[in-house]
Amino acid sequence: MLSTKRKGLLKIKELIKQIPTFVGITMKTYTNTGNKDTRSGFGAGLTELGQTNEKVVALCADLIGSLKMDDFKKNHPERFFQVGIAEANMIGMAAGLTIGGKIPFTGTFANFSTGRVYDQIRQSVAYSDKNVKICASHAGLTLGEDGATHQILEDIGLMKMLPGMTVINTCDYNQTKAATIAIAEHQGPVYLRFGRPSVPNFTAEDQKFEIGKALQLTEGADVTIVATGHLVWEALEAAKVLNEKGISAEVINIHTIKPLDDEAIIKSVKKTGCVVTAEEHNYLGGLGESVARVLSLNHPTPQEFVATQDTFGESGTPAQLMDKYGLNSASIIKAAEKVVKRKK
């Protein structure tokens, strides 16, 4: 038999437990409508562009299936260029195709889209102001078993350093499809980064993609989580748990890393007082550094970086790798708890 006093204490404990749950009710939640790969979003977007925009042409370096470019190739063989395993030539050809008014979309893995052809992009595309869309799948650790040779974690840095280059990293199938369609309307070079594995699809199917416009996914008061790519869903998962722990997190989906939506970040951080950045990329050169620059100039704030720590990846399943290298919701939660404590 419990004493009345003990009963009362339990009741209070029960009530305390319910407080964060109560906060949780007010948090906006997102539903995974079924796992899908972002690269298929790219393929679907390209298929649509094929039908709607005569100027769009596509080039691929022997990875049509991986990039989901089959439909475009089938529907518009005259506008599709299989270049073989020759990425440098692909980038140069894309630059040339713009002369005559075409809008070329190149497709290969992120590593071969950037590091392998950096000087070609720099001179023939960026410095030459060419309207080329460099579309890169299999970015980051989630490429998985192929290992570090293919898992580029430096591409955001490489691309954002190029003057005039727009850098986009989408979070799910729907957003990748919308971004693919949107970049055709944008005049200038774009780097569109997406991934290999099936991941939760949770953004709206009919969304309008606005380059450079951050999306605030949840409203929070204690910490801002600025996430990009596959880490956006992880940030939402983290926000739920944090909410239960009494930390209210404002999750911002940054699909455009350059130009960065400075205003949205500053506005949120002014309210929360601290920030966690989350990306499937090296902390050097990634989203986190871009956010840190904006904040140091405008609103110096404690920041924690969920990113790889200047390391190469390795073979493994995507989930194992994201866990080992600290790129999942658990890592975001830890970082959020830490950064909240750093607030003065």
Partner: peptide, 15 residues
């Protein structure tokens, strides 16, 4: 880099 660009421009002409 120039030959690749020239080829792209040549393909644009054909299109």
């Amino acid at each position: 880099q120039g030959m690749s660009v020239a080829i792209g421009a040549a393909q644009a002409k054909k299109l």
